[in-house]
Write a protein that binds this DNA or RNA. Structure first.
Length: 271
DNA sequence: CGAATCTCCTGGAGGC
DNA sequence: TGCCTCCAGGAGATTC
C-alpha cells in the first residue's frame, strides 16, 4: 500500500515525462474513488506536462490549462510503458504521450483517484485543508504541541489525521510512535513538548529512511519501471504481533485504534 | 466543533 | 478444489 515514500518514489519515476506532449487519453474503468472525468480525453491531448509535484499523497501533474491530480489509494501503482504493452485487468487509465510512452494507472481496489483541477480553481477542497508536509520545517515540535493541545483522541489517530500532518499512514504511525517511545493510545493533548519533539523527529526519520530505501511496501507496490524496486523494510513493530520487541524482547502487541491495526511494545512505549 | 464510525473495492489468506 | 468469511487500508462522508 503506498505510503508517502512510495508516492514520492512514484513521482520521481515519472520525471522523464516532463516536457512531453499528450497524444491521447484512454479511460477503461472510470469508477475509482470518484469518476475519472471523461472530458480528459478531449482536454489533455496536445497539452505539455510542465511540472510534477507532490502534496500529501497526491501527485500533481501540471499541464497547460490545469493540473491532473493522481492518488494511488491503497493498491494503485503507475507504470511508464511502451504503448504496445497490452493493458491488464486492472489497468484503468492511460495517458499516451507523443513519443509512444504511456503513463498507466493500475488500481485493483479502486480507492485511487484521477481528478482535474482547472487553472481557475486554485483552492480545491482536497488540497486546501491539509496540514504541513512532515519533512518540512513547518512540521516541528512547537506546531505539533500547539495543534494537539485541544485534541483528546489517541495520538496514533491524531498523527494519521491529514489536518494535523499529511502523509503518515498506518504503518509509519505505529513505527514512529515506537521509535519515539510513546504509547499509541495516549490522549494527544497529554503529550509534553519533549514528547512532541521526539515524535516529530521520529516521523521525519522514519519517512526519510523509507524514502532512502526507495519506498517500502506491503505487497503490491511497484515502481514506475514495473519492477518491485524496493526492499521490504525492516519494521520495529508493524505486523510483528507476538514477536519479540527488537529493543526489550517482550512480545509486540496488536490492538485496534480507529478501525486500524496498531502495533506497539507495552514495555518500551509509555502513556 | 471534535470524535467516532461508515464507506468505497478486490485479492489473498485461512478455515472447513 | 471450492466456497465462505475475514482482513487490509486512505481519507472523505456521515453521524453523534
Amino acid at each position: 500500500m503506498p505510503e508517502l515514500p512510495e508516492v514520492e518514489t512514484t513521482r520521481l519515476g515519472l520525471l522523464p515525462l516532463l516536457g512531453k506532449v499528450v497524444q491521447a487519453v484512454e479511460i477503461r474503468h472510470p469508477t475509482l474513488r470518484w469518476p475519472i472525468p471523461q472530458h480528459l480525453m478531449q482536454t489533455l491531448p496536445h497539452q505539455t506536462l510542465h511540472n510534477l509535484t507532490r502534496r500529501a499523497k497526491y501527485i500533481l501533474c501540471a499541464f497547460d490549462t490545469g493540473t491532473l491530480l493522481l492518488h494511488l489509494g491503497m493498491s494503485g501503482r503507475i507504470q511508464l510503458l511502451d504503448r504496445h504493452y497490452p493493458p491488464e485487468k486492472h489497468d484503468h487509465f492511460d495517458i499516451q504521450f507523443s513519443d509512444a510512452q504511456v503513463l498507466r494507472l493500475r488500481d485493483p481496489r479502486r480507492f485511487g483517484a484521477v481528478l482535474w483541477l482547472d487553472n481557475q480553481t486554485n483552492d480545491h477542497a482536497l488540497l486546501n485543508q491539509l496540514g504541513p508536509e512532515p519533512l518540512e520545517a513547518s512540521f516541528n515540535a512547537k506546531y505539533l504541541h500547539q495543534t494537539l493541545s485541544s485534541k483528546s483522541l489517541a495520538i496514533k489517530n491524531a498523527v494519521m489525521d491529514g489536518h494535523v500532518v499529511v502523509g503518515v499512514g498506518n504503518i509509519y504511525a505505529s513505527e514512529s510512535l515506537f521509535r519515539a517511545r510513546i504509547h499509541p493510545e495516549t490522549p494527544a493533548k497529554n503529550l509534553s513538548l519533549k514528547q512532541c519533539e521526539r515524535l516529530v523527529t521520529e516521523i521525519k526519520n522514519t519517512l526519510q529512511d523509507a524514502l532512502n530505501a526507495g519506498g517500502s511496501s506491503l505487497r503490491d507496490f511497484f515502481g514506475t519501471d514495473g519492477n518491485p524496486g524496493y526492499f521490504q523494510q525492516e519494521y520495529f513493530v508493524y505486523g510483528r504481533t507476538d514477536e519479540p520487541c527488537k529493543v526489550c524482547a517482550k512480545p509486540i502487541q496488536c490492538i485496534r485504534l480507529g478501525q486500524r491495526s496498531t502495533f506497539f511494545c507495552a514495555h518500551c512505549q509509555k502513556r
